[in-house]
Amino acid sequence: MAEHTFPWTSERDFRLWQYGAGHSQLQFRSTGFEPEQDVVRIEFIGVERVEADRVYPGPVTLSSVASHGPYPGDAKFPRLLLELTAAGRAAFVVASGVRITRETQDGEVLALLFATTKREQDEAADGR
């Protein structure tokens, strides 16, 4: 079963891989492109806001934050406020959920490493 509490960490390097405004999805993917090497994909779902660099050298940490600059933590439609940090760099993402998988180079999911939504985080905070 996948973890669903923050922070999540990885020793791998990550790169901004894809942003789909129409589907409100953002993906980071670990680098290293030998055919036999697996990759780790971080997928944000229901993305409302993004501040990101292209590359994040490992180790990286994904954390939930209470606020970020002028962005309020108590918005009308609650979302996760997330930071991906590495070597002095930080990405900020507002999303309804995040899912992290280990995959083959062709995208076959080998393992679900981490998954959570705003609702699951709120329930955990309330002790449910």
Rank of each mutant, 00 (worst) to 15 (best):
A95K: 10
I100T: 04
G127K: 09
H68S: 15
E51W: 12
E11L: 06
R119G: 10
F77D: 15
E48A: 07
V50T: 14
L110R: 03
E43F: 08
A115W: 08
R79Y: 04
V65T: 08
L84T: 00
A2N: 13
V98G: 05
E120D: 15
R99S: 09
E83M: 03
E83S: 07
A111Q: 05
R29N: 01
A124M: 13
Q25L: 03
D53M: 04
M1D: 13
E123C: 10
V47C: 02
S30I: 00
T101V: 13
G58P: 01
D74F: 03
T101M: 02
P35R: 00
A75L: 09
K76S: 04
Q18H: 14
Y19I: 13
A90F: 09
E3N: 14
D38H: 09
S96Y: 06
V94L: 09
A90W: 05
V109Q: 11
E3C: 11
V50A: 00
S67M: 12
T61N: 06
H4Y: 15
R79K: 09
G46M: 06
G97R: 05
G69S: 14
S64G: 11
G32V: 04
V60G: 08
E120I: 14
F6S: 06
E108R: 11
S64D: 09
L113Q: 02
V109W: 06
E108T: 05
D38G: 03
F92K: 05
Q105T: 08
D38L: 01
A111H: 10
H68W: 15
T5V: 13
S10G: 06
W17L: 12
V109K: 10
S30F: 04
L110D: 07
